[in-house]
């Protein structure tokens, strides 16, 4: 256990835990786009910036990305100093120029009083903030089907050769983790399409509802030792089946009681 001060309040935290989680656990709202529990923090969006200092620093302060900063004894944290707010505003202002159509960013910017970017809007902006959440989650899942391509301002997230990614299994993790929702995909008539690649969807044996992509199921069966039957019935039908069985047990128990 370590003791840190957040906005004047002394708080207990676990050593090594990241500042952002502690801040959030105590109900303090700070914006963050690239942070997600499922992936290692990388500090790409810079929005979770806070100010830190220590008693012995003699008034010296610094700004750090809280998602990447492990707590340590005696840390004094301020989450909303004028400097910090200024930093967040600048980032949001820039992001707004980069992705003018992103509702998430518009909302965040509005909260900081920015309704229109003061920079020139990027002409072919596509709402991607280059936070790498998608490539990181794909890597965590053991696929690494997509990556950053190119360099500098032309860098983008894409599959190799801009073609259907051979390592993709249609799990949708990238699209779901994307904070600005820019990765398009569709589920239509038994077919899932993502990154231009098509995947057959498994239909529930009971109700016919589509569940997950066959490649994804195969992958889980192989890597996580999940029995194949598990994917043959959808969650809904599994639940009703369970309810039916429970009902039977209860009925039998009642019979016995009588």
């Amino acid at each position: 256990m370590v003791h840190i001060t957040i906005n004047g309040k002394v708080i207990k935290a676990t050593e090594g835990e990241m500042l952002l989680s502690v801040i959030r656990r105590h109900g303090i709202e700070i914006p963050a786009l690239c942070h997600h529990e499922a992936i290692e923090p990388t500090g790409n969006c810079r929005l979770c910036m806070v100010e830190i200092t220590r008693e012995e620093w003699d008034g010296w302060k610094k700004h750090v990305t809280s998602c990447l900063y492990p707590v340590e004894e005696g840390l004094i944290v301020s989450t909303h100093t004028p400097d910090v707010i200024e930093i967040r505003k600048t980032i949001l202002d820039l992001q707004l120029a980069n992705c003018p159509d992103s509702e998430v960013i518009q909302k965040m910017a509005e909260e900081y009083g920015i309704y229109k970017t003061s920079y020139e809007v990027v002409p072919e902006g596509d709402n991607c903030i280059m936070c790498y959440a998608c490539t990181r989650i794909c890597e965590v899942l053991g696929r690494s089907a997509i990556s950053a391509v190119g360099r500098g301002h032309r860098k983008e997230i894409a599959p190799p050769f801009g073609a259907e990614p051979p390592d993709c299994i249609g799990c949708l993790a990238c699209a779901q983790i994307c904070p600005t929702d820019v990765i398009p995909w569709t589920d239509r008539d038994n077919t899932r399409t993502i990154w231009d690649r098509k995947f057959e969807l498994i239909s529930c044996k009971e109700c016919g509802r589509q569940t997950i992509a066959r490649e994804f199921a195969d992958y889980l069966i192989e890597k996580r030792n999940i029995p194949r039957e598990y994917f043959e019935i959808c969650d809904n039908c599994k639940r009703s089946e369970l309810a039916r069985k429970m009902g039977e047990i209860v009925a039998r128990a009642q019979e016995v009681a009588i």
Partner: peptide, 13 residues
């Protein structure tokens, strides 16, 4: 992963 090979191949001039 092929994606990483491609990433490196497109990064360096």
């Amino acid at each position: 992963p092929l994606s990483k090979v491609y990433s490196a191949a497109t990064f360096y001039s």
